[in-house]
Write a protein that binds this DNA or RNA. Structure first.
Length: 422
RNA sequence: GGGUCGGUGCCCGAGUGGCCAAAGGGAACGGGCUGUAAACCCGUCGGCUUCGCCUACGAAGGUUCGAAUCCUUCUCGGCCCA
C-alpha cells in the first residue's frame, strides 16, 4: 500500500502545517514508495515526548509503504539549531554525543519497523560530515546559498533581533542540514524531508541546495508544533521533560500525564500521538462527549501512547496502580509491594518513623518536600497523606506498613514510596 | 578608550539609611469546587534547632548604632560617544 492516501490521513489528523507543491508531492507518492527522512537532535540520551510526533509521522509513512530514514544529528548536534531558543546552546562533547546518539537510535528502532521491504534506516550525519573540509563545504554548499536568504529565515532573524545575537556556528546550521538532505538524496535516493514547523526553513534550505546542485525537485512536509490549551509546554511536567526512557520517566508517570489531558486537547492528541485510525478516534470522541466525566478519551489516549512506548504490560500495571492509588482502597503490604517500580521510591531507615517529627523527616528524606519548612507548610495545608491517611499536624506519626513500606502522597498527584532498607 | 544607566528572591519587577526576608505580577505548590479536567475562589511560596536565629538584594571592602539602599574598587550587561 503506497500512494498519496497518507497525505489525506495526515491532513485529517491536523498534521500538515506546510508542504512543498502538494500536487507534485501527491503525484510522486502515487508512483510508489518514497524515501523520506526526519532528523532528530541528540541533545539527550533519550527521546522525550516532544520527539514523539515526528517519529510517529515517520511511522505513518512507513505504514503506508514508504521508506523511512531516521537521522540522528551527531554533527548538527555539535553545532546547535538556533530555532526555538533565545540564546546560544551549550555544545556537547563528542563522547556525550555518541552516547546520546546510541540511546536515541535504540529507541527509534523500537518505534519503527525493522526489516522487510521498507525497513527503517538509521543514519548519523557525523558519518558523512566529519571528513568534509571547510574548503569543500564552502565551495559545494556555501556557494549555492545566499546570505540574504539565510538571514531571512525566522529562526535567524529572531535571534539577530535579540540582545544575545547569534553565533556564526548556529547561523551555519541550516547549511549543514541542507547538506544532510543533499547527501541523503544523492546516496540514499531520499526525496522528502519531514519535520516540525520550526524546521521548515532548514527543510527548504535543503530543497534549494538539491535543486541547484542536482536540478532535482524534492519534497518537504512539516507538522504544527503541539500546543496545550492551558498554555503550558507540551511534554513537560513538574519534574521536567517526560522521557520515553522508563528509567528517566516511569511508565506510570507517563500514563498519568496523558490521563490528565485537558478536554480541549484530547482529540488532537489522539489523532497526532497515537496510531489509532481517524474514524476510531471519532468514535472515542463521540463516546467521550456523551459522558465527559468518564474521561473515556483521556483513558484511550493514555493507554494507546503508553502501549506504543512501553508495551501493554506497562499499561496494565499503570492502570492497576492508578486504581489502587485513586480508588481509596485499603493499602496493605501486598498492595504497596505491587506499586514498586510503578511510582518513584526511596530507601529509608526504619528509625525514621520514631523521630519527633517523623512525617516531616519522611517528606524530606523522600524528596517529596524540599525542606523541613516546606514539609511543615504542606502538612499545615492538609496536603500530605501517608498510607492514605491525611496528616493533620507535624506531631502526627506514621508506621511502615508490614514494617517495610510507607506511601507518601502530596496533593492529588504526587506519590512516593518509602521502602525500609530499599 | 570616554560617558551614562543598570545588575533585587524561580522569572519579571517595586524598593534610595531603620517599619525589608524585601510591594506587585507571573510561574510553581497546597486546599476548595470538579471528572486525577477547564474556569473560579482561598492559602503558601529562602533556610533552620521556627514566638527566635541564620543566610540573602552582582563581588569584595568601607561609613554607620543600623545598609538592598551611602562611599571605594572590581565584575557583568544596556545605551551614547570615540
Amino acid at each position: 500500500m503506497t500512494g498519496a492516501a497518507i497525505i489525506d490521513d495526515l491532513r485529517a489528523r491536523g498534521l500538515i502545517h506546510d508542504t512543498t507543491d502538494e500536487v507534485a508531492l501527491r503525484a510522486r507518492l502515487d508512483e510508489g514508495p518514497i524515501t523520506l527522512y526526519h532528523g532528530i537532535d541528540p541533545s539527550a540520551s533519550s527521546l522525550h515526548l516532544g520527539n514523539l510526533i515526528g517519529i510517529l509521522v515517520l511511522r505513518r509513512f512507513q505504514d503506508h509503504g514508504h521508506r523511512p530514514v531516521a537521522l540522528v544529528g551527531g554533527s548538527t548536534g555539535m553545532v546547535g539549531d538556533p530555532g526555538g531558543r533565545s540564546e546560544e546552546r551549550n555544545l556537547l562533547d563528542a563522547d556525550a554525543l555518541a552516547h546520546n546518539v546510541a540511546g536515541i537510535q535504540a529507541q527509534v528502532e523500537r518505534l519503527l519497523n525493522v526489516g522487510g521491504d521498507n525497513s527503517v534506516e538509521l543514519v548519523n550525519n557525523f558519518d558523512w560530515t566529519k571528513g568534509v573540509t571547510v574548503l569543500e563545504f564552502l565551495r559545494d554548499v556555501g556557494k549555492h546559498a545566499t546570505v540574504n536568504q539565510m538571514v531571512a529565515k525566522d529562526s535567524v532573524r529572531s535571534r539577530m533581533d535579540s540582545e544575545h545575537g547569534i553565533s556564526f556556528t548556529e547561523f551555519s546550521y541550516q547549511l549543514l542540514q541542507a547538506f544532510d538532505y543533499w547527501w541523503l538524496h544523492t546516496h540514499l535516493n531520499c526525496d522528502m524531508q519531514i519535520g516540525g514547523s520550526d524546521q521548515w526553513g532548514n527543510i527548504t534550505a535543503g530543497i534549494d541546495l538539491i535543486r541547484r546542485r542536482e536540478s532535482a525537485h524534492v519534497h518537504g512536509l512539516s507538522w504544527p508544533l503541539i500546543t496545550k490549551a492551558d498554555g503550558t509546554k507540551f511534554g513537560k511536567s513538574t519534574d521536567g521533560a517526560l522521557w520515553l526512557d522508563r528509567d528517566q520517566t516511569l511508565p506510570y508517570e507517563f500514563h498519568q500525564y496523558f490521563l490528565r489531558t485537558d478536554d480541549r486537547d484530547v482529540e488532537r492528541f489522539l489523532l497526532q500521538l497515537t496510531l489509532l485510525p481517524v474514524d476510531e478516534v471519532a468514535a472515542i470522541m463521540a463516546a467521550h462527549n456523551e459522558t465527559p466525566e468518564q474521561r473515556v478519551a483521556q483513558s484511550a489516549l493514555a493507554d494507546a501512547v503508553t502501549e506504543l512506548i512501553h508495551g501493554s504490560d506497562e499499561v496494565r500495571k499503570a492502570t492497576l496502580a492508578a486504581r489502587a492509588l485513586f480508588g481509596g482502597g485499603v493499602l496493605d503490604a501486598d498492595g504497596l509491594e505491587a506499586l514498586r517500580g510503578v511510582v518513584a521510591e526511596t530507601s529509608v531507615h526504619a528509625a525514621l518513623a520514631s523521630g519527633e517529627e517523623a512525617v516531616v523527616d519522611l517528606l524530606v528524606a523522600t524528596g517529596v518536600c524540599s525542606s523541613k519548612g516546606d514539609a511543615r507548610r504542606t502538612i499545615q495545608q492538609g496536603g500530605i497523606r501517608v498510607n492514605g491517611d491525611r496528616i493533620e499536624s507535624t506531631a502526627d506519626g506514621f508506621a511502615f506498613v508490614g514494617e517495610r513500606f510507607a506511601l507518601v502522597q502530596r496533593g492529588k498527584k504526587q506519590r512516593h514510596l518509602a521502602v525500609v532498607g530499599g
